[in-house]
Design a protein around this nucleic acid. Sequence first.
DNA 1: AGTAATTACGAGGTACGTAACAATC
DNA 2: GATTGTTACGTACCTCGTAATTACT
Lengths: 280, 280
Amino acid sequence: MELEQLRQLDVIERDGTISAAAEELHITQPSLSRSVRRLEADLGQELFDRTRNHVMLNDIGYIALDHARAILAEEKKMRDVFDELSRRQRTLRIATVAPAPSWHLTSLVVNRFPGTILVPEIMDEDHVRSSLISRTADLGITLCPLQLPEVDSIPIMTEDLFLSAPVGNRLAKRDTVTFSDMDGEPFLVLDQIGFWMDVCRRRLPTSQIIVQKDQTVFAQIVASTSLCCFTTDAVDRASNDANRIRVPIADADAHATFFVNAQRDATERVRQIIALLGKK
Amino acid sequence: MELEQLRQLDVIERDGTISAAAEELHITQPSLSRSVRRLEADLGQELFDRTRNHVMLNDIGYIALDHARAILAEEKKMRDVFDELSRRQRTLRIATVAPAPSWHLTSLVVNRFPGTILVPEIMDEDHVRSSLISRTADLGITLCPLQLPEVDSIPIMTEDLFLSAPVGNRLAKRDTVTFSDMDGEPFLVLDQIGFWMDVCRRRLPTSQIIVQKDQTVFAQIVASTSLCCFTTDAVDRASNDANRIRVPIADADAHATFFVNAQRDATERVRQIIALLGKK
DNA sequence: AGTAATTACGAGGTACGTAACAATC
DNA sequence: GATTGTTACGTACCTCGTAATTACT
């Protein structure tokens, strides 16, 4: 008795005829007919009432069908578990306080583990911590080591914030600026920039912050208006715009160092990534 | 994924090595090794930690094993049900008030349905009735039609009781006898003769009834003692003994007519037997 | 006529066993 | 050296698809 035969039994019952079932199963009618005969021979019981031109499950056939479906249900459970395992094996869930480190990780991991799919999620540090603990995330990226037992932390990159000002702007001529200098100036800011948004709101309390979700739209607005915005050394998106000047920001909290955190008993693959980062 | 592979996984875990499992499964070691690799490939996961010279289930392997055993348990349920069905198909359970009709049926059924195993059980009429109703028996044999709805009754044979008396006995010279004539005489009687035992006890209230369970022992005692016993036209066991005379018994209850009873919605085979008996 | 199931036959693929190999106890 | 697992190779079996047949609607 083979699982395939039970699957066939199931389909035949649902479709009503061997022909239709054969089509659904992508095999020929004679093949399916023979396969059913084999199953019957194996079980030692006829499962169908046969007229010359039609088959119909008999009482014993329905008993067989019930059992077949129970077996197939168990098999599906197993398949589901292993499909999920395979999916997990391909994906690397990253909980991060800012987008830049996940870009950095992506280029690194994709080279080392081809086929891996990174799933970054931007959240505040508390949620990064809990995601890591609950193993909802494989890697957590924060601004300082999480200092949890059984969690390793390694610095991976720094990111510096710059002012991107239109050439005519009052701040565009400066060599450096501070948040105090910029406060009051209206700013266009991308959504989903993590903790940087908190920095902006805290350090530019009187500025009007215009949040734009869509990156393409953001780029268009930046190119066509004289609003100030931010850029970092992790991107060069707005920097190759001739109409804009990139001005370093002097304040300490315009400079971030990111740490990647991982459970010490994580999967082999995660540990390899941590080891790789540690070497650099 | 095939059931056989799951069975192999189960055996490998129990045996500890692929070699031992292969032997138990009656295949070669390389074959089993490859089969395991196929399963792993199919599931997309390694199930074993491999050293050069040994394999051991890993965490995922144990998950697979759990599921495999769940599937195999369901498969076993199905197999058990169908094994039982096949067994039922080969056996014919007969509830009867006397042994002779079951002998009669046996010769009849074995010719018509080769391979059939008859399982006669001797009991009183009430139990025959309830066995038939509860379908613990396929055929019930009684002294008169059961007259139940949905139950067919057909006469199959008669049986006449004879006195078997040693030549020297006072009754041996008679052409016929009655129970009254015989009462007081000690009797040797076989066990498991059904309702005949009731007849003896009722009609020979003052006789000593010696019950012998073993048929061979019974025959020996009959041959070597001068005890009276009974015989019927359904057997010729004691009749070819030159030292004994077979005397007809005149009373009405020394003559039995047996009826075979069967549920009208019984299996095809049972209905065929009923039809066969009806024709005669 | 058209659909549905079974039987006959040839071909291809798959999994088996044998044999050779590698490595550990 | 014995045991255990993997790899290489040739073969045999098994199931598939095609084609022909039968029967029912």
